[in-house]
Design a protein around this nucleic acid. Structure first.
Length: 185
DNA sequence: CTTAGGATCGCCT
DNA sequence: GGCGATCCTAAGC
């Protein structure tokens, strides 16, 4: 049970509910300000063509991590949704840094807070995400999810960096946040 | 401000 | 051999 978030729900629902929630990995992280939903019948999803060694965690139990290597360089973090075997998930695209700023600056090699976690690859580097975390449950260390404060206004728009299903408005963000990877419009 | 190229891994045809 | 759920740097308007 994480904050009343039901990870067995639809990835679209989970992606919106995660906005405003604080994500920490080993005590380092911040408030989630941007997510993207992916689903099994979604041409842009890693799970679209079925399970393989790389995306296996996406077909595992909900409420666990799916970590993948992007462009052979970056590590990106997803939260698995639906039931085991379905293949849905939510990509964590950006955080507003709130905890472990010094460590994140060191790992990223930059000072600008605004750019520490503004993008899925940057989140991975700042939180030291690696394949060791792939498949691990989100309700136990090193993961920690903390409830957001008050109501949040969530914006939606097309997902970024994909070439299929480019029109689906399955990217979500915290209205007014300057920590998103790209503005909503 | 926008655009272009390189880095580099795993699964695909 | 091709192509990404990306990011950084450099160069051009």
């Amino acid at each position: 049970m994480n904050l009343g978030i039901d990870f067995s729900a639809d990835s679209l629902h989970v992606a919106q509910r995660l906005i405003g929630v604080t994500l920490l990995v080993g005590g380092v992280g911040g408030r989630i300000v941007e997510t993207e939903a992916y689903d099994r019948d979604d041409p842009a999803s890693h799970s679209f063509a079925g399970a393989n060694p790389r995306n296996a965690a996406m077909f595992g139990p909900p409420g666990h991590a799916y970590v993948y290597r992007s462009y052979g360089i970056h590590w990106c973090l997803n939260f698995v949704c639906r039931e085991a075997g379905h293949g849905a998930g939510v990509l964590i695209r950006a955080l507003e840094p709130t905890a472990g700023l010094g460590l994140m600056r060191e790992r990223r090699g930059i000072d600008d807070v605004r750019l520490l976690c503004a993008g899925p690859g940057r989140v991975g580097q700042a939180l030291a995400i690696t394949r060791e975390l792939n498949g691990l449950p989100l309700d136990r260390p090193p993961f920690e999810l903390l409830p957001g404060e008050g109501a949040v206004h969530v914006l939606a728009g097309p997902r970024i960096g994909i070439s299929k299903a480019i029109e689906a408005p399955w990217r979500f963000g915290l209205a007014g946040s300057r920590f998103v990877s790209r503005p909503f419009r």
